[in-house]
Design a binder for these strands. Sequence first.
DNA 1: AACGTTTCCGAAAACGTTACCAAATTTATT
DNA 2: AATAAATTTGGTAACGTTTTCGGAAACGTT
Lengths: 345, 345
Amino acid sequence: MFEPTIKDIAKLCGVGVSTVSRAINNHPDINPETKEKILQTIEEYGYVPNNSARNLKRADAKAIAVLVKGMSNLFFANMIEIIEGECKKKHYSMELSYLEADEDEVDMAQKLIKEKRLRGIIFLGGIFSHSEEKLKKLSVPFVFSTVGAIPENISKSLYSNICVDDRRESKRMVDYLIGLGHRKIAILVAEAEEEHSIGRLRLEGYYDALRDSDIEINPRLVCHTSQKMIPFSMNSGYMTAKKLLAGGEEFTALYAVADTLAIGAARALYEAGRIVPRDVSVSGYDGIELANYVTPSLTTIRQPIERMARDTARLLFDIISGKRQHQHIVYEAELLERESTRAIV
Amino acid sequence: MFEPTIKDIAKLCGVGVSTVSRAINNHPDINPETKEKILQTIEEYGYVPNNSARNLKRADAKAIAVLVKGMSNLFFANMIEIIEGECKKKHYSMELSYLEADEDEVDMAQKLIKEKRLRGIIFLGGIFSHSEEKLKKLSVPFVFSTVGAIPENISKSLYSNICVDDRRESKRMVDYLIGLGHRKIAILVAEAEEEHSIGRLRLEGYYDALRDSDIEINPRLVCHTSQKMIPFSMNSGYMTAKKLLAGGEEFTALYAVADTLAIGAARALYEAGRIVPRDVSVSGYDGIELANYVTPSLTTIRQPIERMARDTARLLFDIISGKRQHQHIVYEAELLERESTRAIV
DNA sequence: AACGTTTCCGAAAACGTTACCAAATTTATT
DNA sequence: AATAAATTTGGTAACGTTTTCGGAAACGTT
């Protein structure tokens, strides 16, 4: 199988390699006729420029990486697809990497950057609890999205972050439940032990709401998912809810910090003979498509994922091209009131 | 920010570049002491070999691509993650690309292969209806998985395929429904108009089952999803079921050719006041995790996705390394009988 | 002490591209 | 017609690796 190189094309057309290069890269200094002829030969012989050689020459490979950590993938699959679409538009290629729990995100990023000469990194999920020093070492822009809190002592000019205010939105959900008359509100939370995690923030929001309404916090209603499980999986929600039920503590509402957890929990409730929302109101967080199709449909906090994903990608490109500086954008989420919650009678 | 190259490391250690290269690549012809020293300097200065330069030199970039087409991502996200894990083990990098409906998969593969010097391609989903000629042009191995039928006239030695027998498994599901006493069985099907599509195969299985049991086929119970929608999305299942209900045709069972469709349909049924499974039995296909957590839990055909994904990746690597030839593996699926179906009384 | 082996190492030639610079050609200006 | 200016072109040096090949150094062997 013959794979032509730029030299072959040049020879075939009776021109120099630089001319072919000009034709490929839309350089202005070229006779339209020669260009036409070259392009035709390229088409004919199925020549495609070798990316490695290109990247080697021009120091700027048009490539970014998306690093995803933790959580079940339901929520991210959507975001990744959108980001990929944006990359395509800009003719960037995208490297996707799912990180294991024990892999260090910054080290991984560092390695990828050097190895592949990446121009930027998008970071989805996980928990960022590194030092400023470490972040400073990264030579390309970093954009976080849906990562939880970034430690306060890290200078904001070192990274971008696109998120919703998890703590506030979480409080909003709990306020809503309280507004419905609920007082015994259980919470299902993942990764809350870890500082700066999304789980922690959402739990804080829960505490905020209870405190605001002078409801005493009952630790037996704060249920942590087991660390042995996939953090935000349905199964994890299911098992944790089972444990809560087994504990015998009374509650009239159950708020899970992710839709997937809520769906798992709803299942456990059903198996225990508790009807949602008659016996217990259930609510989630995230606003994944699925939440609208389960029965009863799930009351949830909808994050504007499409917009967030799109803006994350665009922001990164703008920073790469120097059009914008690092930004910290907080989106407004939306409480979707659906069938799984109801007022206490 | 100083990014050391192999030359810098060589100079730093007072050796030649080739010696550094030998140290990095575990070549035997090197003094353990010098190697040790070099490795140490590399560590110290954070040197990471440039991938483009490597790939340029050795004709074999350690990289493959996964091309995903059509369907909603719920089903594939899982597979992709597993494939990525296998790649990591083999120190391959993985290029992921979601193809738009109008993008030609083979052309895209061709382009990627040349551009990135990929060693192999995995193809997930979509419909393969190309000619043998086109497939022949590809210079690297191709492994399909969950792609529907590959046209018969294409020589089997040109590609690998890992799948379940969609037609047979689909028939199994319908046989099961018939066994429960159902006679008026509606089917929700996507992409069935396209030859060789997964939807078509599953529809054929439905026909097979009815024919076997001498049940007359009622075209009004064969519901095609609208082409304007995302092929296997929940929403598409929801809308199509709505239309079926509006049509007024009687049915006691509804079989959707994907779990996501079934879940959407179940929602439509619920909204129409039809209780599942009391009024109508619902079943799906695929066996995604979710199917077990919705209420009522969904009877479905479970494809062994984990195994399929893993084997797809491994097979590709084996073919690349010449350990195995192209294979055509058909896995056994499993009918999971759950709450959404029941015998007619 | 002289020789053949073995072990280790460095110089230099690729790999396929882009970009700079100078040369060749065409066009415009006087 | 002669010159200046503008437009196209080709040669070639990088980019950072790996690999081949020959040579130097160290080791045995007689």
